[in-house]
């Protein structure tokens, strides 16, 4: 239909998908693309499933990514990869964080965290699994897992030419710049 690329970031409220969406969309804007980004606010943020959707190309119309459209789906949490998998384009890629956040029915023992999700994803889609939580923890702060995943995303989408370090500097607190730059490098190297 068009040259528009669709990047879908999914996770759980509080995982930092919004920051990645912000860095990503500002970098794409600086690189000369038309960009649209959508995010979820309000009630859904209270521990719910969240998505951040970035579309870029020559001219972008819809601000949302629809089912069967994502060129790449980056899941910050494993179960969320499954939940959002219908949004992946046939032939699209997935980057999945091997990281579990149990939801309310699991926490209270009404349901179990499903097993075999990574295998099920790999069976149907080009899936790269990384342990971004462990990698970020090794760098000193598990919260930087979002930037590890961002590094992997940039590599997979062949967007490495954009000046991401300056975007990271512009969008994170000065005290966390070094950590996040390392996390970004680690993410790129992991895929």
């Amino acid at each position: 239909m068009s040259d528009v690329k669709n990047i879908l970031l999914v996770g759980v409220g509080g995982q930092g998908t919004i920051l990645v969406g912000k860095i990503l969309s500002n970098g794409l804007l600086a690189a000369g693309f038309d960009v649209k980004m959508s995010e979820v606010h309000g009630m859904a943020q209270r521990g719910g499933s969240v998505s951040n959707q970035v579309r870029y190309g020559k001219e972008v119309f819809s601000p949302i990514i629809d089912k069967g459209q994502a060129d790449i789906l980056v899941a910050f949490e494993t179960m969320e990869a499954v939940r959002w998998s219908p949004f992946l384009k046939k032939g699209g890629q997935m980057v999945v964080n091997d990281y579990r956040i149990p939801s309310a029915p699991i926490l209270t023992g009404q349901a179990d965290y499903p097993e075999g999700l990574l295998e099920a994803l790999k069976a149907k889609a080009d899936t790269t699994v990384i342990k971004a939580g462990d990698m970020a923890e090794a760098l000193g702060n598990p919260k930087a897992m979002n930037i590890v995943l961002f590094g992997a995303l940039v590599k997979k989408m062949q967007l490495s030419d954009i000046d991401w370090p300056s975007q990271i500097r512009d969008n994170v607190k000065p005290a966390f710049v070094d950590l996040n730059l390392k996390a970004f490098q680690a993410g790129q190297a992991a895929v």
Partner: peptide, 28 residues
């Protein structure tokens, strides 16, 4: 959404990846 418009006016369904696994709900 584009999907709803395409379905209603063109009778087109999205071509989706079907993963054989189910996610447990994540209510707020």
């Amino acid at each position: 959404s584009p999907t709803v418009v395409a379905r209603a006016l063109l009778g087109v369904e999205p071509d989706m990846v079907e993963v054989e696994a189910e996610a447990v709900g994540r209510p707020p």
